[in-house]
């Protein structure tokens, strides 16, 4: 699975980089975002709510993101 390492990057860069990466993916495909910015834990669910893509935390500083299925 594709990984994006945003360790050391502050808000909103981890969300921007994840968003750019997911644009290149197909619906239903997933990636792992690595981020130690405390804002990511809060902002990723908000980003999911706003964009319709799925995300959840899988470990400390690691998040799984799945692109929403397209019709």
């Amino acid at each position: 699975m594709k990984e994006i390492n945003c360790t050391g990057k502050r808000c909103p860069l981890p969300i921007i980089e994840a968003s750019k990466a997911i644009k290149e993916m197909k619906g239903g495909e997933s990636l792992v975002l690595i981020s130690d910015d405390p804002a990511t834990r809060i902002d990723l669910p908000a980003w999911s709510r706003m964009t319709g893509n799925d995300s959840h935390q899988i470990a400390e500083n690691r998040y799984s993101i799945t692109k929403k299925a397209t019709n």
């Binding site: 808000c11 909103p12 804002a39 809060i42 902002d43 669910p45 908000a46 706003m50």
Partner: peptide, 14 residues
């Protein structure tokens, strides 16, 4: 640190 108020509401903090 992100705003504890926005975080508590689930609002985007950046």
């Amino acid at each position: 640190q992100p705003s504890h108020v926005l975080a508590a509401m689930g609002i985007l903090t950046h």
